[in-house]
């Protein structure tokens, strides 16, 4: 079969988004390690590397505009380009949440370590897995994989509620824990929001593959 003129642009967009997704994935991994291992160097690295992710979003946005204007995609090509244009800002927001977690890590790492009883790795692991699975579903254009990933958001919400309660309990027990407890609550919220963004990405995958809008719908 002949190679269509639009093909190179679509491949370029796919590659750019996957590289950006990989960078966001790495940012989440590093910011949670920065907290768990109390390693401020890792947190600083996440903050420093975020500019590159922001730049990737701008590049993807520009390529999408170029493809729409110059190649006039239709049907599945159009859905692909629109989905990329909608997904890149979501990935950028995910990376921003990682930066926020890194900033909390810097603050917490400068304070004495307090026992909160918060197993951050449990929720962070699920959130990271969701992002990996979401990007995998994107690569394969697999709406079923995307739906399975969306279903895991409930798992994150349940972990969030449980860990939130634990932090509140710790804060109630000791006034010394209030400052760092507030930081931990923000960290949990950021992780929970990342899972929401992965859910939005997966909704785009369903649209991309099937033209079906599942956003804001109970299904």
């Amino acid at each position: 079969m002949h190679k269509r003129l639009i093909e190179d642009s679509l491949t370029l967009l796919r590659d750019k988004l996957l590289i950006m997704g990989g960078a966001a994935e790495k940012a989440i991994m590093l910011c949670t390690r920065a907290l768990i291992e109390r390693d401020s160097d890792l947190a600083t690295r996440v903050i420093r590397e975020d500019d590159a992710i922001d730049q990737m979003e701008l590049e993807i946005d520009q390529v999408c505009v170029d493809v729409l204007a110059l190649k006039q995609p239709a049907a599945s090509d159009l859905r692909f380009v629109v989905s990329i244009a909608r997904t890149a800002p979501l990935v950028e927001r995910i990376a921003d949440h990682a930066v926020n977690i890194a900033k909390h890590a810097l603050s917490l790492n400068n304070s004495p370590e307090l026992e909160m009883g918060v197993d951050l790795s449990s929720i962070a692991r699920v959130v990271q897995e969701m992002l990996v699975e979401g990007l995998d579903a994107f690569t394969s254009g697999d709406p079923e994989k995307a739906r399975a990933t969306i279903a895991r958001d409930d798992e994150v919400d349940a972990l969030y509620d449980r860990l939130y309660e634990k932090v509140i309990e710790a804060m109630k027990r000791s006034p010394d824990a209030v400052t760092s407890g507030a930081e931990w609550l923000f960290v949990l919220k950021h992780l929970e929001r990342i899972a929401d963004y992965v859910t939005n990405i997966c909704e785009q995958i369903v649209y991309m593959a099937r033209g079906q809008v599942i956003k804001h719908k109970i299904w």
């Binding site: 269509r4 239709a74 049907a75 599945s76």
Partner: peptide, 17 residues
Amino acid sequence: MFTKPERRMTEDYITGR
């Protein structure tokens, strides 16, 4: 027709395949 055609043949024609 231009966003999510039902038939594969339409899809292929519209996308220049």
